[in-house]
Design a protein around this nucleic acid. Structure first.
Lengths: 220, 220
DNA sequence: ACTTTTTCTTACCCATGGGTAATATACGCG
DNA sequence: CGCGTATATTACCCATGGGTAAGAAAAAGT
């Protein structure tokens, strides 16, 4: 997608750098918007507010987005993209179901303590257009399915104790999603620390026989 | 609306039944409002919508409430009241820290699967007046404190394994609060079933030595 | 029956904020 | 340089929806 590595003096360069400048501005809008949406709430935050923080005026935003709801959608998309990458990496790396679940909890929990991560759970799908809403719901479903899959795999390979994957996934994802509601950047814990903390805490109760055996030399 | 069971001839009765009729109407407004706020979201739900469902017109609502935000607040208050009762009952009944925590999870989780319960976590405090916001935040703090207290007590009496009460409370309350976001009345599980399910699941991992000993004759 | 109070309706006000049209400014380009 | 294209601004439109004023309708009081 990005035609990177621009040969220093190609006649395209001005064109390319212009496009990059545009993309950077677009992202700057999103960073400002997501921050304001989280601070004030989507409905209280106005496009004038967003523009003001960027030292521009409202109509300038329409050079980059079709409307307020599209900005909301793109904020969500930024977060979803990162989670998708996380999932892809974990699935690719392989390991036991419990290992993968722990890694997912760690990385997803850390994401929840970031702006774009929190946007995944703080924003209301009903503020989106029907088309975007469908995409978002599909994304949420994908995350849920991943949690369940890892749990199911863990039960199969014995690393996770038998349990209802659906409810267990609900319980774990609920804990993590809630981070997006209480975490404040000025808090004592870093996103990483949050992720680590939850990764151990949320898997303590469901360790299966295969995984227990391996760690039995260090009983709690 | 229906002036039921009026003791035929007391001089107060008209006055009293009138006041009661008023209270009943007030509550009917709240039931309709909380439902609509949850369905559509607070900002998308209009007072006209609320009134229409009640077969009245918008200004009629102002006989019972000072404004939209007060309706929101009163919806929250209904849920908070129930939780306060639950907490009072559990604390009064006594028992080990783990017992109390389990009962709280059970009852609080069940509440999250009701309209007024969900309103505790789905509504945005920033939509309230400063005064009401303070009350709500105090209520939330009280619930959090109760979770932590029960956990701390459980660690002290040995029914709960040593852990960080703050983070454990976050993890548990997060799971439960999230119920308010995914539970749909048309789902397969009843609020009670939800509460029961989470009560066992969320305490599996933190059972302490004292409680383990007692249940050791029924190993998993 | 007449008055008073409560309750509700009709008809309105108006601040807010998303979105648009017309226009000015910066910038690459031949 | 002047031409065209992004990019931004100023000035506006207008639908929405919370809130209010004035007065009808229904009870309650006497």
């Amino acid at each position: 997608m990005d035609t990177s590595s621009p040969a220093p003096d190609s006649p395209w360069l001005p064109f390319e750098s212009r496009r990059r400048a545009r993309d950077e501005k677009r992202e700057a809008v999103l960073r400002t918007a997501v921050q304001l949406f989280l601070e004030e709430g989507y409905h209280r935050a106005t496009l004038n507010d967003v523009a003001e923080r960027l030292n521009i005026t409202k109509p300038a935003l329409y050079n980059y987005f079709r409307g307020k709801d599209e900005i909301l959608y793109e904020c969500w998309a930024m977060g979803q993209e990162r989670v998708d990458e996380i999932i892809a990496a974990i699935t690719a790396a392989g390991g036991s179901g419990l290992d993968k679940l722990r890694q997912l909890i760690r990385a997803y929990g850390a994401q929840m303590a970031t702006d774009f991560g929190a946007s995944l759970v703080r924003f209301d799908v009903r503020d989106l257009s029907a088309k975007h809403r469908d995409i978002v719901l599909a994304g949420k479903k994908g995350i849920d399915r991943t949690f369940r899959n890892y749990i199911t795999e863990g039960i199969a390979d014995g690393s996770i104790a038998p349990c209802d994957p659906k409810m267990t996934a609900f319980a774990i994802a609920g804990s993590l999603n809630w981070i997006g509601h209480w975490y404040q950047r000025d808090g004592a814990l870093s996103p990483q620390a949050i992720g680590d903390e939850f990764a151990v805490r949320l898997t303590e109760g469901i360790i299966g026989p295969a995984a227990k055996r391996r760690r039995s030399k260090r009983p709690r």
